[in-house]
């Protein structure tokens, strides 16, 4: 049996504010197997972004257990978490989050710097990935010289540069028009199907969620639906904003 990519048991997350402790995630448990394509939906304030940040080792939970590829995330220190983010996880953000001053090949190669890869190898790899997402000829351009859809492709190339098992996408199409969104989602589907990369993404739109196999619906910090997208009721696929 292959280890699950994500195993979460009884996860809690509280935020401490001046008004007191606010529970955001309450007793969340989920297992994601290799090769799955999971869409997470939920209204604002349902805790889906917090959940994503914890999945991505950017934030830590208040209680419960989180095993990422078998290692207990809560027991790792900052440097070990950074290593996980670098080698196991690839991130795609709504706002692309490219470095504006660096050209595209340097942006894509950035994660490799923190692995100590030589410059020539870094550039070879980043050019390979830029070509893969169809932006090979823009290697020397800067992020502000290309369109939003293209920027998101660059961000995906960057997320893939270390060959991660897990791709996390926080509303990757949130800033894109419908046509571009489709292209981006086709890319995610392709990566999931032909390369076997596990994908977890957050979305508001049912159309986007339909690209996934599995739907997880969060409401008020709890999982209210977890199953195949095809079996989800209209209520669970309801668009959120």
């Amino acid at each position: 049996m292959v280890d699950a990519v994500i195993t979460i048991e009884n996860l809690y997350k509280d935020y401490v504010t001046e008004a007191g402790t606010v529970p955001v995630l309450k007793d969340v448990s989920i297992t994601v197997e290799p090769g799955e394509f999971v869409a997470i939906m939920g209204p604002s304030g349902s805790g889906k972004s917090t959940f994503m940040n914890i999945l991505g080792c950017l934030d830590v939970s208040t209680g419960g257990r989180y095993l990422l590829k078998g290692s207990d995330v809560n027991s790792l220190d900052r440097d070990e978490l950074a290593l996980l983010r670098n080698q196991v996880i690839g991130f795609v953000f709504q706002g692309f989050n490219l470095l504006p001053r660096a050209n595209l090949e340097d942006n894509v190669a950035l994660p490799l710097i923190y692995r100590g890869v030589k410059r020539s190898e870094r550039l070879a790899k980043s050019n390979e990935l830029l070509a893969k997402v169809g932006l090979g000829k823009y290697a020397k351009s800067r992020p502000n010289q290309i369109s939003g859809g293209q920027q998101q492709r660059v961000a995906i190339a960057r997320a893939l540069v270390n060959q991660p098992q897990l791709l996390l996408a926080d509303e990757p199409t949130g800033n894109l028009d419908t046509r571009t969104s489709k292209e981006i989602m086709a890319l995610f589907s392709h990566l999931n199907k032909s390369e076997g990369i596990t994908v977890v993404l957050i979305t508001h739109e049912p159309d986007i969620a339909m690209h996934a196999n599995r739907l997880v619906r969060l409401a008020d910090g709890k999982i209210v639906y977890d199953g195949l997208v095809q079996h989800a009721s209209a209520e669970h696929l309801e668009p959120t904003s």
């Binding site: 290593l83 983010r85 950035l110 923190y114």
Partner: peptide, 16 residues
């Protein structure tokens, strides 16, 4: 700060 966040998200350690 945001750039630092991006770098950390893609695997930069504190010492980097």
């Amino acid at each position: 700060t945001r750039e630092i966040g991006i770098r950390m998200a893609i695997g930069a350690r504190g010492k980097d």
